[in-house]
C-alpha cells in the first residue's frame, strides 16, 4: 500500500468512526442509513459495506442494537409503555422494534418490562439479570454466559 493509499484508508476509517459515534450520540433521533451516509458523503450501499467490514455488523444493525439497549433501560423504569419506549428510542416501527428486541434480548419487550417490574433487581431470575447487567452489543440472544 502506498503512503497516499494508506492515508486515504485511515481517513476512510475515521469517517466510519464518525458514523458510529453519530449513532451512539443520536440513535434516539429518527436516523436511518441514507441520512448517516449523506452525513459523510458516501452512498448508503458503500457505507453499509464498509461499516460491516470495519465493525462486524451493518450500520442498521448497530443502530437498532443501540436502540434496544436504550429501550431496555427505559422499560426497566416501568413508567413508559412499550409503544412509548419504541418511539422514545427513535424507532418508527413498533413491529420492527419488537422483532429486533426479541432477537437481541430473547424475549419481547412487553415480557421484559413485566419481568423487570415484578421482581426487584436482586431477585430477578439469573437469565434476566444477565441481560440487565451486561451490554448486548454484538451479540444475539439468547446469550450464553460463555459468550
Amino acid at each position: 500500500m502506498t503512503r497516499r493509499a494508506a492515508e486515504e484508508h485511515l481517513a476512510d476509517l475515521a469517517l466510519l468512526r464518525r458514523v458510529r459515534d453519530r449513532i451512539d450520540r443520536d440513535h434516539a433521533q429518527p436516523l436511518d442509513v441514507p441520512a448517516l451516509a449523506a452525513g459523510v458523503g458516501m452512498s448508503a450501499g458503500h457505507l453499509s459495506r464498509r461499516f460491516k467490514e470495519t465493525y462486524g455488523e451493518s450500520p442498521y444493525s448497530y443502530l437498532m442494537t443501540r436502540r434496544v439497549e436504550r429501550a431496555m433501560a427505559l422499560l426497566r423504569r416501568g413508567d413508559l409503555s412499550v409503544t412509548e419506549v419504541c418511539f422514545a428510542v427513535g424507532s418508527s416501527s413498533p413491529g420492527t422494534f419488537t422483532t429486533r428486541f426479541s432477537e437481541l434480548v430473547g424475549m419481547p419487550p412487553g415480557e421484559y418490562r413485566r419481568r423487570a417490574r415484578t421482581a426487584p433487581a436482586g431477585e430477578l431470575p439469573s437469565c434476566v439479570t444477565r441481560q440487565v447487567d451486561r451490554p448486548i452489543r454484538n451479540r444475539e440472544a439468547p446469550p450464553s454466559p460463555d459468550v
Binding site: 494508506a6 484508508h9 485511515l10 481517513a11 476509517l13 475515521a14 466510519l16 458510529r20
Partner: peptide, 11 residues
C-alpha cells in the same frame, strides 16, 4: 503498526 493506526482511526 498498521493495525494499531487502523484501530486508532476506527476509534
Amino acid at each position: 503498526r498498521r493495525t494499531i493506526t487502523e484501530l486508532m482511526a476506527k476509534g
